[in-house]
Amino acid sequence: MSGILVYALHYQGEFNKNSLGAVSQGAKLARELGQDAAAVVVGGDDLTDELCASLGKYGVSKVYRAKAPEGLAQPVVDVMAKVIRDNGYSYALFGGGLLGFEIGAGLTARLGAGVTMEVTAIKAQDGKLVAERPILQDSAVVDVDYVGEPGIVIGRLNAFEIEESGGGPAQVEDVDVQLSEWSTKAKMVQRGEQRGADVNIEDADILVAGGRGLGKAEGFRMCEELAEALGGAVAATRAVVDAGWYPYAAQIGQTGKTVAPKLYLAAGISGAIQHKVGMQNSENIVAINKDPNAPIFEFSDLGIVGDLNKILPKLIEAVKAKKGG
């Protein structure tokens, strides 16, 4: 067996940035191993020859294309299992995102394969890949080796950089796959619904982010006031977006946006990995949390251990006074 197969997720005619990072990374590792890298795409008619071949820019010579329902993992498991079995790939690679976890897990079962997730770096070593995976809330990093083949590598969000390697258009090969019976038993009713107002947070230099520690939806008023005083915008965690306290468009993290403002002020946010991956590159991180053991203090530049209900109102007044004066 040899070679690396990378899953490339697309939506509305465009490839996912994390997938392009994974394709670039896969191609680079394959070169280091002296092997080939290919991509696999699954979907409908928007997967044109041109779109698929464009993955060649990121270093893959071949793209397998299969027609199957989009946005669900199990049909992709069927496709990738077949491509891996027919062509003998040694590794399957995924960028950060929810579907990668599900497809990778399905392949693990189908092929009896080893899997690593939240991988932040991959090394090519003695003709094999070794994955670096942070564990226990990033308090340690383990080097993981695969026993047998194939090995499944699921990356962390934004772990792999997009790199154009100067390759020409990739060869596109259609694969005909008989979906498993159970893969057809989940049907997408509605995809990509944007809940709540459409706010723009990606261009803001200053973000005031709120989490479950705000206590209730009304707590976001304090974030809005502080953001206004600082001349910034408001962001949120998945916990509060799922609870309906704040619009999805303001969500930072694995299934939300990635930002790197000059100032990220987090109020009542624990700092879970899936949130961290969307904001850890901010220039200055300030966190207010009443729990001195909150993980966010591990990666903030200024941490305030205290009750946000006491601190935020006074901070709003103080910032207003400074800016006004």
Binding site: Y11, G71, K185, A186, G192
Partner: peptide
């Protein structure tokens, strides 16, 4: 919530 927003999916049992 998936990569592009909220998805609604109908799933047959057993699941």
């Amino acid at each position: 919530q998936a990569e592009y927003g909220y998805d609604t999916v109908e799933v047959e049992l057993p699941a």
